[in-house]
């Protein structure tokens, strides 16, 4: 179009584009290197391990010397009579913890703490954060004491006091406690996100709805909840993935028991197989097969979430073209 276009303008501009990319890659470099070194390469290694029979009996740190067994680990896994149970255990665990605690209870707590005196709200939220910042060993110790048999257990002490029968909760209701224990930790994440979202709603809007004659409950239903839809989706997404991969508390509380795999979840199995086998024989190859499947599920879920919630709409084009 232009006859005045300077000679070599195209190559100059592409050279500039390259330079500007270099600037961006400079900013990305530290994160990029860490991600490559501690995520991508490990995932590649775990993929590789999953097709070897590496175990503590034939351990070698030299990748080339490991024995290739093809898809045998996956076959074993699929034929494992407990894999199916563990799979459904995982779904059950994520579904219930997420819906009851990480989302619903978190939402209720943040709504309650934003509708009371501001300082009291701060205090209550500080108390709710306790499970997250307490060392898991001590946190689980507390819950073990809660559910212990009489006369040590706290709940059973209440039961006795009320003239009720006492129970061995570890044996009767392990799942209830696994979910409650993890749920009480999970509340704080959603609580912080929701509270900060509610606090960022313009005060005019909140006052306007009261002036319009709605009650506080109606205001929550018709003003606040629609406005925090996005953080809700964010918490659902983020916490599903968190729950899928969390296992430390379960390991400390029930270690997948009582009995055979009663409260075992997928990530705990990967850990058990690879690091803390009952028989003292760590099966890294087989454990990696569990890990690979978990990675796969996590990635698929994340992709689905991104599609459904249109996360890529968040990626606006930069409005500066300077290197």
């Amino acid at each position: 179009m232009s006859i005045l276009k300077p000679k070599g303008g195209q190559s100059q501009s592409s050279r500039n584009a390259l330079r500007s990319y270099l600037g961006a890659y400079g900013f990305m470099a530290p994160a990029g290197v860490l991600v490559i070194v501690f995520f991508l390469i490990p995932v590649a290694i775990v993929l590789y391990l999953s097709v070897t029979n590496l175990a503590s009996s034939n351990f070698t740190s030299d990748l080339a010397k490991m024995e290739f067994v093809g898809l045998r680990n996956y076959e074993t896994l699929l034929n494992d009579q407990f894999a199916r149970k563990i799979f459904f255990n995982t779904i059950f665990y994520v579904l219930f913890t997420l819906s009851i605690f990480n989302v619903s209870a978190a939402l209720i707590v943040s709504l309650l703490t934003t509708h009371i005196d501001r300082n009291a709200g701060f205090l209550f939220r500080a108390l709710w954060i306790l499970p997250r910042i307490t060392s898991p060993v001590v946190y689980i110790l507390i819950w073990k004491r809660m559910m212990a048999e009489a006369p040590f257990g706290i709940i059973n002490q209440f039961n006795e006091f009320l003239g009720q029968p006492t129970y061995n909760y570890v044996a009767t209701n392990p799942w209830v406690f696994v979910i409650v224990v993890n749920g009480f930790i999970g509340i704080s994440f959603g609580m912080i996100i929701f509270t900060s979202a509610i606090e960022s709603i313009p005060k005019d809007l909140l006052n306007a709805s009261l002036v319009d004659g709605s009650s506080k409950l109606q205001r929550i239903r018709y003003v606040i909840l629609p406005l925090i839809r996005w953080p809700l989706l964010f918490v659902v997404t983020y916490q599903t993935l968190s729950l899928l991969t969390s296992f430390v508390e379960i390991q400390l509380l029930t270690d997948g028991g009582p009995g055979l795999y009663r409260t075992e979840v997928w990530s705990l199995t990967a850990f058990h197989r690879a690091l803390s086998n009952y028989f003292g024989n760590a099966q890294w190859g087989y454990g990696s097969a569990f890990a690979v499947l978990l990675v796969l599920i996590g990635v698929v879920l994340a992709v689905v979430y991104m599609r459904v919630f249109r996360f890529d709409e968040l990626i606006a084009e930069p409005r500066v073209e300077v290197l």
Binding site: L49, T245, A274, G287, V295, Y305
Partner: peptide, 18 residues
């Protein structure tokens, strides 16, 4: 976001090699 879905803990073994 996908990274968050990585069971970082199950990467403990490969990270050991790294």
């Amino acid at each position: 976001l996908i990274l968050h879905g990585f069971p970082a803990i199950t990467l403990l073994i490969p990270i050991f090699f790294v």
